[in-house]
Design a protein around this nucleic acid. Structure first.
Length: 567
RNA sequence: CGGAGUGUAGCUCAGCCUGGUAGAGCACUGCCUUCGGGAGGCAGGGGCCCGCGGUUCGAAUCCGCGCACUCCGACCA
C-alpha cells in the first residue's frame, strides 16, 4: 500500500488531552482519533492492528472449540428485567427507547442474550457443552473514562460464554480458555501474568485476570517471584502469621491527649505502628455497624471487607457522628475491648499479643491488650498485602507490579440459568440448571496495552505479530529519482510476493519527516531506498528494535525479502 | 458525583492579572532555494477567542450561569 493512498495523519506534538504513552502514541501515529470522552475512531493504521489482534484471538479460540457468533448490540429491556440487572446495573447501563417507547439497553455485555439464545436453541443435554464467543463493540457509560483506549466507554471486546451440564465439563473448558488467553498473549509477545482475581458482582467463585504488565496499569498485582502465585491486590492473600508467644502483660490505661492517629499514638508510646491496632467502623448487613480491626501498619482491603457476610456491600465507612453515637468516643480512640459491636480482626491483628488499641474513651488508649482475655473477635482476612509478606503457598515473599487487565475469565455458576430458566434433562430423569462460564478479553484495550509495553522515545515498536504492516519502504527522493521509484517498487513487490503487508512511503516529504514518521508508526522492518545509496548499489535495512541500519546490495535485499527470511 | 485544571487558527501554546477590537511556532496555499533524521526565504489563506447572560463608551481579558475536555478521588465484569 502506498502512503499517498491512505490516511495516516501523524502528529508532531502530543495532543493536550493525552497523558500516558499508549494514548499519546496511538494519537500521534494516526491510529485513532477521539470523538468525545471515551469514544474513538479507528483510522486505517490502527484498524489494521485491531484486525490482526482479532485474528489471533479467533485462531486460538477456534482451535479450542469455541465458536464465533454475533449478537445484537441493542437489546430489549425485558431480558435484562428477567435477569434482574435492569434494576441492579445503575447508570453505566445506557438505556434508550424506540419509537414505540419500548425500553432497550445498549449492551455492555451479553449474558442475557446468550442465555436466551441457548434456551431457545438447545433442546437436549446431548448437545452439551456449548462454547460461543463474539468480537463486538460494547458500551459502558463509565463514570470517568480515561487513559485513551484503556478505559473507553465504547470499546471492542471478545466475550465468550460456555454452558455445561457438570462441573467437570466446565472446568475443562475453563482451563482451555485459560490456555487460549495465555497463547494469545504469548503470540503477541507480551509480558503478562494470569492472576487470581475477585469476581466482582458477577461470579461467586474463582476467577482469573490476565494482566499485561505496565507502569500505567490501573491494577496492582501481587506476585511471588519464587513461585507461580499471582493475584490482584483486591484478592491477594499472605500466609497468616502464627499467634505471637510471650507472657501476657497487664491491661493498662494510658492517657493519650490529642493523639488520634496510629502514628501519633505509637510515637507517644515509643512503639512501632505494628504493635498498635486500628479499629474501623463500617456499615453492617445484619446490624447497623460492624468493627474491623487491623494492625496499625496495615490497610483495609475494601473488596475483602465487602465480601464478609456481616458487612453491607458496598463497604461504607460509618460517619464520625454515627461512630460517636454508637461507641461514645471519637474515631481516633476506638478499640475492640468492651466494644458492643460485632468485631472482625484481620489475621495479622489477631496474631498480636500485648498490643495497643483505643479505649473507646477520648484521649485514652490501652496497652498490654490480649485477645480472648480482653477482647473477642472473629479472625478473617481483611488487609491489603504488602511487599515482603510471605506468599500464601509458603514459597517466598510477595512483590508488586502494575498491570492492565486485558482478560478476565470466570465461573458464573447457575446465576443466569436460574434467573432465566435455562435447564435441561440430565438423562437420568432429573433436570439441571446449566453451569455457565464467561470469558472476556478487551480487544481495543489490548491494543493500548501492547503500545504501553512496546514503545520507545521515538514511537511505537509493534510486535511483528500485530504490526499494521510487516515492511515499511522509505523511498527518499521519490519524486525526483526514477531509480528510487524503480527500486522502491521492486522492494515493495518482492515483499508482497513473499506474502508481506508492505507500506511504501512515496510521499513528497523530506527524509527527516519520513524517518520520524517511520519511527512513530513502528513497523518492524524498514527498507530505506535513497538516491545516495543507489549510487553504491545498496539499500538500507533496519529493524525497528535496532538503532543501526545495514547497507545491503539491492539484489541481496530483494532476495532476502522475497524469501521471507527477514521476518 | 466531590476536588482541581483547561477551553484562543488544523496542532502545541502566548495574550487575560492591569479591558482599547488577536499573536507565535508548526501545519496549509503559491513561488524560489534546499534535499539522508521533523530545512530556509518571500508572499498568502485561515479565528462566533467554548456558549449564553451581565458590567462597561468598549470584553479573549472582569462577573454569573451553562457546556466540553483532562487530571485526582469515589465508581468499575
Amino acid at each position: 500500500m502506498r502512503a499517498s493512498e491512505t490516511l495516516i495523519p501523524t502528529l508532531r506534538e502530543s495532543p493536550a488531552e493525552a497523558e500516558i504513552p499508549s494514548h499519546v502514541l496511538l494519537l500521534r501515529s494516526g491510529c485513532i482519533r477521539q470523538l468525545a470522552s471515551g469514544l474513538y475512531t479507528w483510522l486505517p493504521l490502527g484498524l489494521r492492528v485491531l484486525r490482526r489482534v482479532e485474528a489471533i484471538i479467533r485462531e486460538e479460540l477456534d482451535a479450542r472449540g469455541a465458536r464465533e457468533v454475533q449478537m445484537p448490540v441493542v437489546q430489549p429491556a425485558e431480558l435484562w428485567r428477567e435477569s434482574g440487572r435492569w434494576d441492579v446495573m445503575g447508570p453505566e447501563l445506557l438505556r434508550m427507547q424506540d419509537r414505540h417507547e419500548r425500553d432497550y439497553a445498549m449492551s455492555p455485555t451479553h449474558e442475557e442474550v446468550v442465555t436466551d439464545l441457548i434456551r431457545r436453541v438447545v433442546d437436549s443435554y446431548h448437545e452439551m457443552p456449548v462454547n460461543l464467543y463474539q468480537i463486538q463493540t460494547k458500551f459502558r457509560d463509565e463514570i470517568r473514562p480515561r487513559f485513551g483506549l484503556l478505559r473507553a466507554r465504547e470499546f471492542l471486546m471478545k466475550d465468550g460464554y460456555s454452558f455445561h451440564l457438570t462441573d467437570e465439563s466446565f472446568e475443562k473448558t475453563y482451563r482451555d480458555m485459560h490456555d487460549a488467553y495465555a497463547a494469545i498473549l504469548e503470540r503477541i509477545g507480551l509480558e503478562y501474568r494470569a492472576v487470581e482475581a475477585d469476581a466482582g458482582n458477577i461470579g461467586d467463585s474463582e476467577s482469573h485476570e490476565f494482566q499485561v504488565l505496565a507502569e500505567s496499569g490501573e491494577d496492582l498485582v501481587a506476585y511471588c517471584p519464587d513461585s507461580d502465585y499471582a493475584a490482584n491486590v483486591e484478592k491477594a492473600r499472605a500466609l497468616p502469621p502464627r499467634r505471637e508467644q510471650g507472657p501476657a502483660q497487664t491491661l493498662t490505661r494510658v492517657a493519650t491527649p490529642g493523639r488520634r492517629t496510629i502514628a501519633e499514638v505509637s510515637d507517644l508510646l515509643g512503639l512501632d505502628a505494628s504493635r498498635c491496632v486500628k479499629t474501623l467502623i463500617v456499615r453492617g448487613a445484619r446490624e447497623p455497624l460492624v468493627a474491623l480491626v487491623l494492625r496499625g501498619d496495615h490497610e483495609l482491603n475494601e473488596t475483602k471487607a465487602s465480601r464478609l457476610a456481616a458487612v453491607a456491600a458496598p463497604g461504607t465507612v460509618a460517619s464520625d457522628t454515627e461512630v460517636e453515637a454508637a461507641v461514645g468516643c471519637s474515631v481516633g480512640s476506638i478499640g475492640p475491648v468492651d466494644l458492643r459491636l460485632p468485631v472482625y480482626a484481620d489475621e495479622s491483628a489477631a496474631a498480636l499479643v500485648n498490643f495497643v488499641c483505643g479505649a473507646n474513651e477520648d484521649d485514652v488508649h490501652l496497652t498490654g491488650v490480649n485477645w480472648d482475655r480482653d477482647a473477642a473477635a472473629e479472625t478473617v482476612d481483611l488487609r491489603n498485602v504488602v511487599a515482603g509478606d510471605p506468599s500464601p503457598d509458603g514459597k517466598g515473599t510477595l512483590a508488586f507490579t502494575r498491570g492492565i487487565e486485558v482478560g478476565h475469565i470466570f465461573k458464573l455458576g447457575t446465576k443466569y440459568s436460574d434467573a432465566m430458566q435455562l435447564a435441561l434433562q440430565d438423562g437420568s430423569g432429573g433436570e439441571v440448571s446449566l453451569i455457565m462460564g464467561c470469558y472476556g478479553m478487551g480487544v481495543s484495550r489490548l491494543v493500548a496495552a501492547i503500545v504501553e509495553q512496546c514503545h520507545d522515545a521515538a514511537g511505537i515498536v509493534w510486535p511483528a505479530a500485530v504490526a499494521p504492516f510487516d515492511l515499511h519502504v522509505l523511498a527518499l527522493d521519490y519524486g525526483r529519482s526514477e531509480d528510487v521509484r524503480r527500486v522502491a517498487s521492486a522492494v515493495h513487490d518482492a515483499g508482497v510476493a513473499a506474502g508481506l503487508d508492505v507500506l511504501l512511503d512515496d510521499r513528497d516529504e523530506r527524509p527527516g519527516v519520513k524517518f520520524a514518521d517511520a519511527d512513530l508508526i513502528g513497523i518492524p522492518l524498514r527498507v530505506t531506498v535513497g538516491a545516495r545509496g543507489l549510487r553504491d548499489g545498496v539499500v538500507e535495512l533496519r529493524r525497528r528494535t535496532e538503532t543501526e541500519s545495514v547497507r545491503v546490495p539491492i539484489e541481496d535485499a530483494l532476495a532476502r525479502i522475497g524469501s521471507g527470511e527477514l521476518l
